[in-house]
Every structure is written in C-alpha cells, then in structure tokens.
Amino acid sequence: MRRRHCLGLLAAAALAPAFAPSAWAEAASFQTLDLDWHDAARGRAVPARLYLPVQADAAHPVPLVVFSHGIGGSRLGYRYLGEHWAAQGFASLHVQHVGSDRSLWGGNPFALVERLQGAAQDGEAIARVLDVRFALDTLLASPLAPRLDATRIAAAGHSYGANTTLLAAGARLDRQGRVVDFRDERIRAAILLSAPPFYGEADPRTILAHVTVPTLHVTATEDVIRIPGYYSGAEDRVSVFEATGSEAKALAVFQGGSHSIFTDRRGTGGATLNPQVKEATRALSVAFLKRVFDGDEAALRQWPGAFAGIVARFSRAGL
C-alpha cells in the first residue's frame, strides 16, 4: 500500500494535549480502570481507560462507547466526556493509539512536523481502527463483559479519532483498485467531533456513503485545522456530515470555538465559550445515545432550545 495521507487529520489535538484534572468529575457514580493490553498478533500495545458505571452488572448491563483520541492524545484525554457518559449510565472505553499518541510531542522539536506527517499515513490509520477492534474484542471477552451490553455499542472520536470512528463505522477507501473496509458490525452508532475529510480523496461521498449507522456530527464555525503542510476549513466538517450515508443523523455547529475546543484544554476557543461548548456537547451526545439506544427523543428535541445562545446551526434527520 503506497504511503498516503489518508486522514484529514494532522488534526488536532494537534496543538498540545492537556491532562488537567477534570472539572466535571462525578466519581461517586463510576469507577475508572486503566487497562494495559497488548495485541500479540500485531506486536502493538493497546492501552485503554474504561469509565464504568457502578450500577453496571450482569442483571443491568450498560451500553458502551469506544472513544478514539486525536493525534497526539492518549487514553487520559477527553475525560469530560468519559466521566459524564459513565455518570449517565454509559460505559466509555478510551483507546490509546501508540503510533499517533502523545509520544509524538517528545524528541527533537525540529522533527515534530515529520513525526506528525508520519502518523498520518495509511499504515497508522489502519492500525488505529484495528486498535479499536482489538480493544472491543478484548473487553468483550474479559470478566467485565457481563456488565456491558454488546448490542448497544457506539464509537466516538475527535479529529483523527473521528476518521478512525468513520472507518470502524463503515467508511471505505479505494487503494489501487482494492477496497479497504474495516467496518465493525458491533458498532451501532457514531459520534464525530470535528471530523476532517479523508485527505487527498476527491469525493467524500464515495467513502462515506457506506456509513449507514446513526451519526452525530459536532463542530464549530471556527473549527479550522491549520498546521504546516495541511489546511482544512470549517466547511469540511459540514461536508463530512452531508456525505455520510446515515439516514438518521444530526449536525451541531457552535458559534465561534476552535478545532481543539473539544479536547480537555480549557481555554481554547474562548475562556467563556469553552466550558459552555463542553457542557452542550456532553448533553447532546447523551441525548443522541438515548435516542439511538432507547428510542427516547425528549432530550434531543429539547437540546437546541437549551443551548440556543451558542449554536449557529442544528440539523437532524431521522432522529
């Protein structure tokens, strides 16, 4: 397979990860487990962090969200989502992708762009989606499995992680006449934060038409990716939404913001707007999951009014 920037991604958590303690912890209602797995078949470590609701047991298994971080991230990131989902009754498994994780920020700073570009190649893009598959396989074969509802699994991700999520949800690429398809049939829904286009691909519809599970797309009017050698305007996030083949899908566009506002960083996109967007994103993602898994439309219907002051656009169809 020829080297190619498959993912629009140099994306971005790309501008410096942050691991500050979460301001939104609801620790009394969930436990946090760090899992240090190794995929022997690929010779690749697959660390993960699981946020598990305390009420989850064999008699009351809970839905699962498997989360993929942006480039330069780790299993420690996006705590504001993992903790909240677990507090709301959804287990959340945050997978760390060792070929495109926080280790990229170490080493010679003059070689940083080269390391980022290397992490954006097809090989790592495929390794990431295989990390997700391995993590699901391992978790669902573990003693924790009876506490999880394997019929209600969603994938989620930010930036490069959104591309990983799309691949796991059915996106197909053509490489020299061969279809690259890593769809995982266990995934019943997808949450896509700041999804970049698949870089270098002319028509996103040919790639994303095969994503047919319900999808939630979240972005902002200033959700721009701009690093050396790569640029993606905010309109690209909307194009991904439009190209996705899901009959049931929704798009939320916040006014202002930034590409990294959806990470744990607290000041990006504006010190006042940042926590508001995080609160709205948490609420919207839970409303989406409840609609998809439980058929409960109330929270999703009420969400636009509750956050009207910061939402530039909200569209939904089939939800």
Rank of each mutant, 00 (worst) to 15 (best):
A125Y: 10
A125N: 08
I126E: 15
A127P: 10
R128Y: 13
R128G: 10
V129H: 12
L130E: 15
L130I: 07
V132H: 14
F134M: 12
F134P: 08
L136G: 10
D137M: 03
L139C: 06
L139S: 05
L140K: 01
A141H: 14
A141C: 05
A141K: 15
S142C: 02
S142M: 03
L144A: 04
P146D: 02
R147E: 09
L148H: 10
D149W: 00
A150Q: 15
A150K: 10
A150I: 03
R152G: 05
I153E: 11
I153C: 11
A154Q: 03
A155S: 13
A156P: 02
A156H: 04
H158G: 08
S159M: 03
S159C: 07
G161D: 04
G161T: 02
A162T: 09
A162L: 04
N163H: 00
T164Q: 06
T164N: 01
L167I: 13
A171N: 04
L173H: 06
L173C: 10
L173F: 12
D174S: 13
Q176Y: 14
G177A: 02
R178K: 11
V179K: 11
D181I: 10
D181N: 14
D181C: 02
D181S: 08
E185R: 15
E185K: 13
R186K: 12
I187L: 15
A190E: 09
A190N: 11
I191T: 10
I191N: 03
L193S: 13
L193E: 12
S194W: 09
F198Q: 08
F198M: 09
F198G: 02
G200I: 12
E201A: 11
A202N: 05
D203A: 04
P204N: 05
R205N: 05
R205L: 05
R205I: 07
I207E: 02
I207C: 07
H210G: 08
H210N: 13
V211P: 06
V211D: 12
V211M: 11
V211N: 09
T212C: 08
V213S: 05
V213G: 03
T215V: 05
T215W: 07
T215I: 01
H217V: 13
H217G: 06
V218K: 01
D223Q: 02
D223N: 02
D223L: 00
V224K: 04
I225C: 01
R226P: 00
I227K: 03
I227Y: 02
I227V: 13
P228H: 09
P228M: 03
